[in-house]
């Protein structure tokens, strides 16, 4: 695959994605990309077993690359409250992903501190999306 593709998802406690974003941002959603998104869901969901296993054996939040299926690598980050950040990527970019996760973690904490937001609810904040886009551009290119 020529272009670097990333799919970022924040997974709640019931394995439900509460935030999703594809990088690079702004590309038109074709039928094919919808299909890929679907495949990403499956791969990301399957990787959660490994993420949970890693989370139990290590104190690190950033779990590096935990899984792989076909061309998709799966990196993960587990927050203190056991919210899981999943990144599916076609190219290795450990350092960038790590920094992206860190920044998103901070953004997520700020968002979670909003008294109107309940843990595990879907994140629909445009500001959060904007931040994710910004960090995506910065670290995942």
């Amino acid at each position: 695959m020529a272009t670097k593709e990333f799919y970022f998802a924040i997974i709640g406690h019931c394995d439900q994605p509460i935030f999703e974003m594809d990088f690079p941002v702004g590309e038109k959603k074709t039928k094919e990309s919808e299909g890929t998104r679907h495949l990403n869901h499956y791969i990301g969901h399957a990787a959660l077993d490994i993420v949970d296993e890693h989370a139990l054996t290590t104190s690190q939040m950033y779990l590096k690359m935990v899984d792989k299926f076909n061309e998709w690598y799966v990196s993960a980050f587990v927050t203190a409250s056991r919210i899981r950040f999943i990144m599916l990527h076609t190219h290795r970019a450990d350092e960038g992903i790590k920094q992206f996760f860190q920044e998103m973690y901070e953004t997520y904490i700020k968002h979670a501190m909003n008294p109107f937001y309940e843990i595990d609810d879907v994140i629909e904040s445009p500001a959060f999306e904007q931040k994710a886009t910004l960090y995506g551009r910065k670290y995942l290119s």
Binding site: C14, D15, Q16, P17, H38, H41, Y42, H45, D120
Partner: peptide, 11 residues
């Protein structure tokens, strides 16, 4: 509200 990965479940 806590159904889990709804899209996958539907599929």
């Amino acid at each position: 509200k806590k159904l889990g990965p709804v899209k996958l479940q539907i599929k």
